[in-house]
């Protein structure tokens, strides 16, 4: 069963690598931010699977930090400039 979890983590990792293409080519910054968000969520899933298959329970805390990081990055990205776009 740990082998199965590791195989699923590998599939998720390949999915993340494919999603990275959107970060590189994405036409607008909003596309890149969305791709980074998907990257963070898939990263959480990979970390949860690795925590069980490698038997390192502390990786759950890293997954919590990933969730916080996504919120901070999106908030920093969508913050409005003081002068120009108040409305």
């Amino acid at each position: 069963m740990p082998d199965f979890l590791l195989a699923m983590a590998l599939v998720l990792l390949l999915t993340m690598s494919a999603g990275l293409a959107r970060v590189v080519i994405g036409p607008t910054p909003a596309d890149r931010m969305m791709a980074a968000q998907l990257l963070g969520t898939s990263g959480i899933a990979v970390l949860l699977l690795l925590a069980l298959s490698l038997d390192v329970p502390a990786l759950l805390d890293v997954a919590l930090i990933f969730a916080l990081l996504a919120a901070v990055a999106v908030a920093a990205f969508t913050r409005r400039r003081a002068g120009r776009d108040q409305a």
């Binding site: 607008t28 910054p29 931010m33 919590l64 969730a67 916080l68 996504a70 999106v74 990205f77 969508t78």
Partner: peptide, 28 residues
């Protein structure tokens, strides 16, 4: 708890990105 945190931050983030894109402020 982790799932609830991800759902809240994901919904808020999607809303912010969509609002910003609707106002036409998403270009390079």
């Amino acid at each position: 708890i982790l799932w609830v945190l991800v759902m809240v931050s994901g919904a808020t983030g999607a809303h912010l990105i969509a609002k910003r894109a609707l106002r036409g402020d998403g270009e390079d």
